[in-house]
Amino acid sequence: MVLTACSGGGGDTDSTDTGSDSGDAVSAAEEFITPWLGEGEKNLLITEPLDEPVPEGTHVIYLDVGTPVSAVMWGNLQTPAEMLGLDLERVEVGRDAQSINSAMNTVVELEPDGVINITLDPIFFESQIEQLDALGIPIASGSVMNTVEYGLPEAFNGPDWMTSNGEALGAAAIARSGGATEYVFYNIPEFPFSPYEMEGVQSKIGELCPDCTVRTVDIPIAELGSTAADRVVSDLQANPQTEYFISAVDEVQIGLPAKLELAGIDVKGIGMWTAPPNYEQIAAGDEDATLSVDLNLMMWTILDQLLREMAGQEYQWPDAQTRASTLTRITDQSNVPDDPVTGYVSIPDYQDQFAAIWLVG
């Protein structure tokens, strides 16, 4: 999608103006991304303690959509489940409508105290949502864009959160490229959050650099982990004017640096939803940057929301930019995590802080 096509004369005055405009755009972009640099003290999104401790053996079901990141997030729930004495159960939901329907019928039959859903679109289990609601069983969601439309609690990282981080990606692209004017966004159509990231990228680049162009290229989800990097190489070969790329998910960059080098292409980029191999590439100087998400803090926050929903305790999320910049950070070689598996840690003592508001100990 073209925000504004670049056109103009080639005289000396135009060149000077373009350079000035580019410098202004970079300065404005650097100022905008300040909250995403990971500096300063950060707080939990909800700091109000629970009204009472969580009963031992509280049954919580985690819906596993079968992706590698879903497996990581399941792992991230183990420590808080042990801390609270939860009976944490994993239900694999599959990826087709029939499998999802069958799995969600099982969830209803199990009658848990609460359910955690990461990325699964409620459109696939609308009837089970009604059944769970009738049973008084809440669902807390992560990276789901349409919770409110289906009568579910608003996810802290819904559309506004995704759009805000998309704005950070767009500004970071301008800053890190030194004021490039030709960009491409690699969209993953099957991920419902991807269009919101794209919206943020386009709006922020359009605001900071009206003469910049942002192309959009779809990469099917089936190509992640296989041929996504090849598709990026082919696109950049076909569009040599491209100066910097932005990806909805950083998995697109896994293995990409070596293929770009082989093809003789020197175009850098930034993505979101970082995997351990991305951190390793950044540490080696092969990948420019990523917008890290603190996945541990994300899962503990979603669990905290579920505990409040189960207890009927009111809470309120802070504004979108605060939510976004609390859990995400622009990571490059200067601040890459030592442990690529643990990844970015936003709040070093988050476990102690959650223990305090959960009345543990």
Rank of each mutant, 00 (worst) to 15 (best):
A5E: 14
G8W: 03
G10W: 06
D12K: 11
D12T: 07
D12R: 06
D14I: 14
G23T: 08
V26E: 13
S27E: 15
A28T: 11
I33P: 06
T34E: 14
L37T: 13
G38L: 04
D51C: 05
E52H: 04
V65L: 08
V65K: 10
P68L: 08
A71P: 03
N76M: 05
Q78G: 02
L84D: 11
L84E: 09
L88Q: 10
E89Y: 03
D96K: 03
S99T: 10
M104R: 06
E109H: 00
P112L: 08
I116C: 07
L120N: 13
I123H: 04
F125A: 01
E126H: 08
I129A: 13
Q131F: 01
G136C: 09
I137T: 12
N146S: 13
T147W: 00
L152M: 11
P153E: 06
E154F: 04
A155S: 15
G158R: 07
P159K: 14
P159R: 14
M162C: 09
A171L: 14
A173K: 02
A173V: 01
I174L: 15
T181D: 12
T181E: 13
E182F: 00
F185C: 05
N187E: 10
P192H: 03
P195T: 01
Y196I: 00
Q202D: 03
E207T: 12
L208V: 11
D211K: 04
C212M: 02
V214H: 02
T216P: 01
T216N: 09
I219M: 11
A229M: 04
V232G: 05
S234Y: 01
L236R: 07
T242W: 05
E243C: 06
V252K: 06
I254P: 01
E261S: 05
L262E: 15
G264T: 05
K268W: 02
G271F: 06
E280N: 09
T290N: 04
S292C: 04
L295E: 13
W300G: 06
T301A: 08
D304I: 07
D304A: 03
L306H: 03
Q316F: 01
W317V: 15
Q321C: 00
T322C: 10
S325R: 12
I330C: 02
T331R: 11
Q333N: 11
D339H: 02
P340L: 09
V341P: 00
V341M: 01
T342F: 06
I347T: 07
P348Q: 13
P348T: 12
D349I: 03
Q351G: 00
Q351T: 10
F354K: 05
